[in-house]
Write a protein that binds this DNA or RNA. Structure first.
Lengths: 381, 381
DNA sequence: TTGAAAGCGCTAACAC
DNA sequence: GTGTTAGCGCTTTCAA
């Protein structure tokens, strides 16, 4: 903070006054009209009330309309006028009031995203990476991300409120697992949204979506191990009712069968927890004697790492392990966990692109987008 | 999605029409006034235009103001009227338009947070947990979290825009490291904000803040090891210019000195990366021969885990390791990394509480809040 | 090209 | 208690 704070610091009470209703009222009523003041500069050189369109118009000697046009339709202005107006906008630090603009245009430029935390004791932290990319991608188009959580028991009520109060222009939905009602409900409400995840349960769904090819990822992982000389490669996946899990599993199968290798007894389906992965890998190791594991998640892969640790085995040397999601855990655990990496940055970009098309007038119909993951190779293979 | 999607699904193009300007224009111009229609129900039973205050007023046979009061000052209404209005609000699914309300009240009920992603190849994912708690805590008070990132080169311009466009009521600042300009700048702008992190660099700063007592955390970790019988406990921390790092280090020193133990040669200060932690721990192990490590972060602790792995040593059995932050990595790495856990849920609650006081009229001055972390004990100690 | 008028949906202030 | 009036700051007609 370089010591500059002391000079301008005040009590918190005073800090906030500038934005309290009282302060605004006082300013308006005292009928100040001097440009320097009206532009929101108090004697102390601190902004008091944000600059408005009218301030800019007055100072530039044009009508409010012209200022609005300078911002939204600059091509309508004569170059000289545009330059002058822009000059004043810069001088005054004018930025259009979002509430007023939203009210008028019926568009908040806000995108709603239900934010659920990563499970504790799990290796999943996709959201973090995705969210950041999303924030960046939306910012480029002048949108912001609004986070919300479930209000209460009713899982859709938060969406409903946001929609009814026109707080957001659209949603991004990340729950596309079996039985998740969001996509269907939003479709029914005719609310614009883009899903991260295919509409597994209803192939007839026509909403916009972006997803990562899990089968291709697992195939990539399996081929990597095959190329390393492994033949007995086990699969640790999720329960059968998980579409995503079955999709990834199909990739493993495909790669194995392509080399004419048997997969009998080499697969298991368990819950996505460390302990499930730990016990399942122990069982597999005892029975099918695989030399490598491909897992549906880093969490399961870490379960396998636990088993190796228990037995004094070393990942990568004695048994190879490959995970899925390239979590931070995969990146920092010794000796490094090879893992399938989802291109979340690209997903975010595609999601925003889809959003853009959806919110265009008229909206543009669009197919789903399927992206291909990569493999981050580390010490465990 | 339970098969309900097909019945109501339409092309994306039509989905979004309901919220496009064109559609709205058409509706208004056709002068519909029948309550069922005006309330936003198209024949297909799908909302078309959100219900407004006027719709509710008309249907309830009261003035718009009365409806507004029913929502914001229910105690002003006669019970019978209130009941009737509320009934209609429920029937019509009315939710006040946020843009209109913001424009009028000069309050968006949005809290801005600059969202930076966790570093790759680092064990830090505090943000994820904190953010979720924050979303929940703000929701309880009717606020939402708006995420943004740096526009470009100028680190403050994003704050500036949001402020000038009155897009947010306040900010939450998480960068309080040495030289971070946010807090000082916001104070200068008289913008309401609460910091997660003490104003280390300027003790005279009077803004609201919430922080976790890092020294107490390190002390807790060190005492835990001392209780286990360790005496040669090494410290791996950050560079000296990190206030947070020095604070945590002080906790280690305090605990060691309290037992009359020497700390000479037992500490190092390095960058917060796996490889730094790895090499530093290797050096310490060779020279000072510690039996345990207390680290300023899980990242450094994982560096130590790498060193143990390299030497065929087992964490917890041969050498104890304790990290800081209780990241997912600490939770899933075998055999489990003991780590200091920050009470982020409580931090979020306190931050929102501070925000509330800040945005009250008049704002309430408040001191900083310092919370105490806990220790999550696992296999590594 | 620029300007004037209207109104988005809501709430503060004041009348009744 | 309830209704009336006005206006938050902006953009969208439409006229000049």
């Amino acid at each position: 903070m370089g010591g500059t704070l002391g000079e301008t610091a005040d009590s918190p009470a005073e800090d906030a006054q500038g934005y309290a209703d009282d302060a605004f009222g006082t300013i308006k009523e005292s009928g100040m009209s001097h440009p320097e003041q009206r532009a929101g500069r108090a004697p102390g050189n601190l902004p008091v009330a944000p600059t408005t369109l009218a301030d800019v118009a007055e100072r530039a000697g044009v009508s409010r309309q012209t200022v609005s046009n300078a911002v939204n339709n600059p091509e309508l202005l004569r170059p000289a006028t545009l330059r002058r107006v822009r000059q004043v906008i810069a001088e005054l630090g004018y930025s259009p009031n979002r509430a007023a603009r939203s009210l008028r245009t019926r568009s908040s430029h806000l995108i709603g995203l239900r934010f659920t935390p990563a499970q504790e004791s799990t290796a999943n932290a996709l959201m973090d990476r995705f969210l950041h990319s999303l924030v960046e991608a939306t910012a480029e188009r002048g949108y912001h991300v609004l986070l919300f959580s479930d209000d209460d028991t009713e899982p859709l009520s938060a969406y409903d409120h946001l929609l009814r109060s026109t707080a957001v222009d659209a949603f991004i939905v990340t729950d596309t697992y079996l039985g998740a009602p969001q996509a269907a409900w939003l479709t029914g409400q005719r609310a614009p949204f883009v899903a991260f995840g295919r509409p597994w349960a209803d192939p007839r769904a026509t909403h916009a979506w972006v997803d990562v090819d899990g089968a291709a990822g697992a195939e990539l992982a399996t081929e990597h191990l095959l190329d390393k000389g492994h033949e007995r490669i086990a699969w640790m996946g999720w329960r059968k009712d998980s579409f995503i899990g079955e999709d990834r599993r199909a990739g493993w199968l495909r790669a194995m069968h392509a080399r004419g290798l048997s997969t009998t007894g080499l697969a298991c389906r368990v819950e996505d927890t460390i302990s499930s992965g730990r016990s399942a890998s122990a069982v597999l190791l005892g029975e099918a004697r695989p030399t490598a594991f491909v897992c549906a998640s880093d969490t399961l892969a870490m379960g396998a790492m636990h088993t190796l640790h228990d037995r004094g085995l070393v990942a990568g040397r004695d048994v190879a392990v490959v995970g899925f999601d390239d979590s931070q855990v995969a990146q920092v655990v010794p000796p490094g966990l090879t893992s399938v990496r989802q291109p979340l940055e690209d997903v975010a970009v595609e999601v925003v692109r889809a959003l853009q098309r959806l919110l265009a007038t008229p909206p543009v119909a669009q197919p789903g987008v399927l992206l291909t993951p990569t493999l981050a190779v580390r010490g465990s293979s």
